[in-house]
Amino acid sequence: MSTRTIATLVAMALLAVLPPIFFYTGNAFWLDLATRLTILAIAAVSLNLILGYGGLVSFGHAAYVGLGAYAVGIPAYHWLYGGLESLGLATTSGLVQIPLAMVVCALFALVTGAICLRTKGVYFIMITMAFAQMVYYASVSIEEYGGDDGLVIDTRSELPGLNLDNPIQLFGLAYLSLVVAMLIVRMITRSRFGMVLRGAKGNAERVQMMGLNPYAYRLTAYVISGAMAGYAGALLGNFTTFISPEMMDWTRSGELMFMVILGGASTTGGPVLGAAAFIILEEVLSHFTIYWHLPFGLLLIAVVLFTRGGLMGFFRGRK
C-alpha cells in the first residue's frame, strides 16, 4: 500500500470517527463543520474528475452545487405554497429531489459542455465561468424563489428510513455519499474510459490519432461530474436549509478549484484532504481575525508558488 493510500484511509477514518464523538459529546458546532466539509468534499471529488484527470479547468462548478440545492428548495417551496403539482414537483421527497438535482445538472452540463468543450485553454476557463454566471444571474432575478435574498428550505428532503433533521444522520448520509463518490471516480479513472480521458489530458492530438475522439469522452466526463456536483448541492441544501445565489458566485467555484489543487489533483484522496484543510483553515483563521482573508489569500498564493501536487505531494504514490 502506498503512503498516499494510507494518508487517504487515515483521513477518511478520522472523518468517520470524529463527528459522532462531537455529536455525542454535544459539540454540535464541530459536527456541523464536519458535515459541511464532507459535502463540499463530494463537490471537490466531482470537480477532480474533470479538472484533475481530464485536465479541463472548469471555473463554474459552484453552479452545479447551487442548481442541486435549488432542486431541493424549489419543490419544497411549492409543496408548502402550491404550484407545480401537475409536474409532480411539489414535493419534499428526497427520492424526487435528489434525482431531479442530478438530472438537471447532467442536462446543464450536457448543453453547456457541448459548447465549452469546443474551446481550449483560457477560453474554456472563462466560458465555463460565464455559464455559471448565467445561472447566478438567473437565480438573482427570479423573484418567486427569493431572488437575491435566497430561499429558505422549510422542510428537509424525506428519505425512507432516514431523518435528515437529525444532524448525525445527515452527516452519515454525506459521509457514505463521499465514500461512494470517491470509489466511483476511482473506478472511472482506472477504466478504459478513464484511460482515454487521462490520455487526452496528456496529449489530445495523439489520442485522436489513435482513433478516439477526445470531445465525446470529455463531454461524458463533464456530464458525470456535473451530476455528481448536483448531488452534493442537494445535500448542501439539506444541510444549510437555505439557498441563495451567493452559493453560485464565481468565487465559490474558485474555492472548489482551490480545494482540489490544495489537496492534490488527480488523486483519489486529494480533494478530500483539500476540502478538509480549506474548511478547517477558514474556520480557524476567521476565529482569530475578521481580516482572515489576508493570511488565507497569502497562503493560497504560497501554495501555488511553492508546492507541487498539493498536500498529496507530501506522500509517495505508487511508482
Binding site: I188, R190, S191, R192, F193, G194, M195, V196, V207, M210
Partner: peptide, 14 residues
C-alpha cells in the same frame, strides 16, 4: 484499447 474495442467502458480497470 483504441484498436481492439469500445473505450466507453467504465467499470473494469483497464
Amino acid at each position: 484499447q483504441a484498436r481492439e474495442g469500445s473505450s466507453y467502458r467504465f467499470i473494469r480497470a483497464a
